[in-house]
Simulated assay, not measured.
Amino acid sequence: MRTAPTRATNRRYPAFALVTCLLVLPALAAPAEALFAVVPAVLAALAALARYPVGPLTLVRAAAIVAGASLLGDLGFLLTREGLAEVKWALPWLPFELLALLVLLPRVVRGVPPRQAAVLGTLTGFAAVVLPLRFSLRNSHGVLEQSVLGVMSAAFLVLVAGGFGLRQRVQDDRRAEAIERARREQRLQVARDLHDFVAHEVTGILLETQAARLVEYDETRTKELLARLEAAGQRALSSMDDTLRVLREPETRTEPPSTRVRGLADLPVLLRRFEGAGHPRTALDLERGLAGTLPPEAEDAAYRLVVEALTNIRRHAPGAGLVTVTASRTEAGLRIAVSDDAAPPTAPATPPRTAGGTGLPALTERFESLRGSLVAGPGAAGWTVVGVLPLEETAR
């Protein structure tokens, strides 16, 4: 896993050696005052080329050292004896140091924590802006004009480099936020799938097992029960595989991966399984030509509404004799309704759980996120769940 970074670092060593030779060797023929220009230039160039961390050396420490060395070089060069010869000797290193500072500045702005980026970015930019003064103040002719022109030119380059680094930082932050949103959506998607599909099948298995304990043993019925339990277990495992497939997606993608999308066309099979498990009779009123023509988000939300409603009927309405599912296109959009004819239960069908009860609230949030609405409450005989999705808004 560390092969690529190691190779990239190894490729930088020749570059470090070449830059050092190009900047240091000419200094051997220059007067001693040139060291005030050579040392900061070498340090800045090496810092700009390095990949951090380099042992204990981090980007923060490197930027602080380079900026400090540059400002000390300015001070030391200006405090030496006056003379134009030293300026001419030291001037060739100015472009290299300025370029290195301009390369280092966006790296600091982009790559270090905000407070340190503000301090070190300002310090590095200031070192680049005042760098021309190191030479212009030693010139006896046109000091003011050269100083103003040099500072303004360097300031423009610093603003460009700092703006580029800030733009990269904003893009990095947005990318990190997008990845975090995708991961959060993955977790929510996993939770929805576990609740809507896996828990639906497990609830059916649990209720059938509890019902089997209340009747006398019958070989034929037991075989039928075991077959239904096996089929429900297979479907639960299949749904679990779909859910786990989401978790195996690469973590760097910025869009949430999709799981299997079910829709209105799957309702007949769902209702047959529900009725075949010994539950109430079902009636499906599905508008002709509606299934398969709606946006995937609307189809999936409608299917999940029916699953949630059937799960609640299994658990809370054991006396229901008929469950009616209606799906039609209205002026408001897609209308999906599930109702039963059970009287209010006098006692819970199953022992209460310490956790749960999040299905309808989560489903309501899902419908509202699609600009729709969901209402659940007493109906003409039993309980009714009605969801409405504006198809025009969903399709956008």
Rank of each mutant, 00 (worst) to 15 (best):
255 E>I: 15
211 A>M: 12
365 E>V: 06
36 F>W: 14
306 V>T: 07
224 E>V: 03
133 L>E: 12
313 I>R: 13
213 R>T: 01
109 V>G: 10
174 R>Q: 01
249 E>S: 14
255 E>P: 05
157 L>S: 06
8 A>S: 04
261 V>F: 04
61 R>M: 06
98 L>A: 04
250 P>W: 02
275 E>Y: 08
271 L>I: 03
295 P>F: 07
78 L>V: 06
82 E>C: 02
323 V>N: 07
1 M>Q: 12
354 T>N: 12
47 A>F: 04
275 E>G: 05
362 A>H: 11
100 A>T: 12
185 E>R: 11
73 G>F: 02
238 S>E: 06
271 L>Y: 02
138 R>Y: 07
104 L>W: 00
69 A>H: 01
46 L>S: 09
364 T>G: 04
369 S>R: 01
316 H>C: 08
119 V>W: 13
183 R>S: 15
92 P>F: 14
79 L>K: 08
26 P>H: 09
215 V>L: 05
76 G>R: 14
306 V>D: 02
270 L>N: 04
279 H>S: 10
199 A>M: 05
396 R>N: 03
154 A>M: 01
109 V>M: 13
13 Y>D: 10
217 Y>C: 04
129 V>T: 13
105 L>N: 00
395 A>F: 01
55 G>T: 10
369 S>V: 00
25 L>R: 09
92 P>L: 07
245 R>F: 09
313 I>F: 15
285 D>M: 10
237 L>I: 07
217 Y>G: 09
263 G>C: 07
26 P>I: 05
16 F>A: 12
349 A>L: 01
161 A>Q: 00
85 A>G: 14
297 E>H: 00
180 E>Q: 15
169 R>D: 14
57 L>S: 13
239 S>I: 06
140 S>G: 12
353 R>A: 15
66 V>W: 06
266 D>I: 07
306 V>G: 10
49 L>N: 08
163 G>H: 09
93 W>I: 13
305 L>F: 14
215 V>M: 05
299 E>Y: 04
115 R>Y: 02
7 R>F: 08
141 H>Q: 11
72 L>Y: 02
196 D>A: 13
108 V>T: 08
162 G>S: 15
154 A>Q: 00
74 D>G: 06
